[in-house]
Computed example of a mutant assay.
Amino acid sequence: MSIALIHEELHEGEGDNELNFSIYLKKLIENLFQTYKIGNAGISLKIDLEENLFFDVDTAVPLGMIVNELVSNSFKHAFPGRDEKGIIQIKLSSEKSVDEQSNKGQLAEKSNVYTLIVSDNGVGIPKNIDFENPDTLGLQLVAILVDQLGGEIKMKRDKGTEFRIKVNVKQT
């Protein structure tokens, strides 16, 4: 679903290699919400996305897959009681521009730092799951994709689960 939506957004973007990631991410999250809504009627969704964030495919695909995996995990594991009320939150924002210098002191390229937060107020990830060396394929995939983006990920287990991912995205 994640990749199919990217193809759809690229097609609507008139063949450009960049897509409006804000619009794409909102569609992806809404599709996930509709998919998991059955049996999870008490779960609500809060989305806070900076508008008009444009990413190329090499950034959009891994970030979309990360969101897909983390939101799916929240639906499947964070709220084990079918009647539980809960909140899943997704936030994406830019923080600052970073100017990278070449070894000759010249401006080599410019990038923006983006923070993606996926959190829920569910039961939290069990203490026996080592996030640094996860046993689950899904968390391994998330770690690999964050690494592929050259980013960093932190997890909190306080009053639910929060994943905070920071990536530098080169400006074109």
Rank of each mutant, 00 (worst) to 15 (best):
I3T: 08
A4L: 04
A4S: 06
I6E: 06
I6P: 01
E9K: 11
E9Y: 07
H11F: 15
E12V: 02
D16W: 04
N17K: 12
N17I: 04
N20A: 06
I23Y: 11
L25R: 06
K26A: 04
L28A: 09
N31F: 10
L32P: 02
F33I: 01
F33Q: 02
K37Y: 03
G39R: 15
D48S: 08
E51M: 01
E51D: 13
F54E: 00
D56A: 07
D58Q: 11
A60K: 07
L63C: 04
G64H: 12
I66W: 13
N68S: 13
E69F: 04
A78V: 03
P80G: 08
G81F: 01
E84R: 08
E84T: 06
G86K: 10
I87Y: 14
Q89T: 07
Q89R: 13
K91G: 07
L92N: 10
K96L: 05
S97V: 01
D99A: 13
Q101R: 14
S102K: 12
G105D: 05
A108M: 07
K110T: 11
S111L: 14
S111V: 00
S111H: 11
S111R: 15
V113F: 10
Y114Q: 00
T115A: 12
V118R: 13
S119T: 00
D120I: 00
N121L: 02
P126V: 04
K127R: 10
N128T: 02
I129W: 10
F131Q: 05
N133W: 00
T136F: 03
T136C: 03
T136M: 05
A143E: 09
I153H: 08
K154Y: 10
K156E: 07
K156C: 01
D158K: 07
G160W: 09
F163G: 03
I165S: 12
I165K: 14
V169T: 09
Q171V: 11
Q171C: 07
T172G: 14
